[in-house]
Nucleic acid binder design. Structure first.
Lengths: 246, 246
DNA sequence: GTCAAATGTTTGTACTGACAATACTACATG
DNA sequence: CATGTAGTATTGTCAGTACAAACATTTGAC
């Protein structure tokens, strides 16, 4: 045990050294090279083996601890946490998640308008009364089967949005291309019963269980860019996440 | 703007300096002293003003960025994020969350046994076939109204659990007192329809919406300590969280 | 007047060095 | 045999410094 991690660090690469270490260890864990419970060498030796300083090594391990892949204990050492491929819930769009999984999602635009925001939306997006927003509802399908019904409001002073673009790609992708750098989002997950309309669109029965999600996203300048209410078919979608103790 | 944070640092305190800064800024934000959108002084000046080194100051701000309270941009500066005070979803028990809110939750023990784990539970807890576990179901009420129905399995080689203790305090509290230091958990949130039995216990109607949650928790030695399936009344409970872009 | 280059500000990354706090082990002591 | 104590290993915290990269603004050229 405690063999020196088969890693190579490229100092001429633009990707930060600590991030190269994060990637390397992550790969070693997912590939099974580092088994659950395996004890790593101590920080100082690891750093020396890779010709890095201890703070850099530590920063890398910090990230992995936060991501839930490693567990540290003072005076003892660092261990690979027990198994199962688990991705922490990150700030990403459903569209991106699905394509990353290899699915080919499609989007039906149900409604699309450019209107004055009502009081509730103004509050949620931190806008002055009377400001205009994009408002649209979409139906997301995978392999022809409906998965989610999404209603969103987006402020209109950042990116121009049109119906054609929305049907081709995810909302977040459009916003990112428009120069929006998302930083964080607050979301709330709950449950509800399908109404007749929802059931019809999602091709299920009224009274079926739905997962509900409300989200408001903030960009790197602190603007509240987007807010939305989504519902998912409970038999086809759950939110997976990893919680880390601070 | 950019007035120097009204903070005092106690160097003789056992609490780390960076954490004192985190607390201080957090308090300033929640108290409204630092308004959303407010731009902070730069790291170097802030550090100097508090007689701290820049790495220490940075570490404090890092935490706040991860917690979703601050937003940073290279070449520009650091801002207080404009948002409602919402704490990120942390690894905590329902019981603790409720008491922290000022509620006084009660627990009814519905079943309690000490049995051989079946194959599924063995897998989830990483146990050898035939290992014994505690298995119990509880009904959690707040102000006399039922909120959650919880079924849990706990490995039995760490802490002794009895029915009396469970009815008095939360599971996590018991485990912590038994020397378990939780580090992370994976959980999955979805939705379902109340069965007749569930409806009866939760004092709602069959077919009502329920939020479902499955969780497996890991301690600081990498042991899979506990796994459980919970259902909550959707009209009384949602999961709130903050997602931070890495 | 418009576009490009230079400049300054601020955060991002990285290194070195030092000491403190905690956990485990082995040993001595009663 | 039990118990406390010292020593060792490992992570946790903190200081100080240097340079790189991204961004915003000003300056300069055409």
């Amino acid at each position: 045990m405690a063999n020196s991690l088969n890693l190579t660090i490229d100092r001429s690469s633009p990707v930060p050294l600590y991030h190269q270490v994060v990637q390397g260890i992550q790969d070693a864990i997912t590939s099974g090279e580092l088994e659950p419970g395996h004890k790593l060498e101590n920080e100082i030796d690891l750093a020396a083996a890779l010709n890095l300083s201890r703070p850099t090594m530590r920063k890398a391990m910090d990230e992995l601890v936060r991501a839930g892949l490693l567990v540290r204990k003072r005076g003892v050492g660092t261990q690979v946490v027990s198994s199962q491929v688990r991705r922490p819930l990150e700030l990403s769009s459903l569209f991106d998640d699905l394509t990353a999984q290899g699915s080919k999602p499609t989007t039906d635009i149900l409604t699309f308008s450019h209107v004055e925001a009502d009081a509730e939306i103004c509050t949620k997006l931190g806008l002055a009364a009377g400001a205009k927003v994009y408002h649209f509802t979409r139906l997301r399908k995978v392999a022809g089967k409906p998965l989610a019904l999404m209603e969103n409001w987006v402020r209109n002073d950042i990116v121009d949005i049109d119906e054609a673009g929305l049907s081709q790609q995810g909302l977040y992708s459009i916003l990112r291309k428009g120069g929006v750098n998302f930083r964080l989002a607050t979301q709330s997950i709950g449950a509800a019963i399908a109404t007749e309309l929802q059931a019809k669109l999602l091709e299920t029965t009224p009274g079926a269980a739905l997962v509900t999600m409300e989200r408001t996203a903030v960009d790197d300048t602190g603007r509240l860019v987007e807010t939305g209410r989504h519902v998912y078919r409970a038999d086809q979608y759950t939110f997976e996440m990893t919680l880390v103790q601070r």
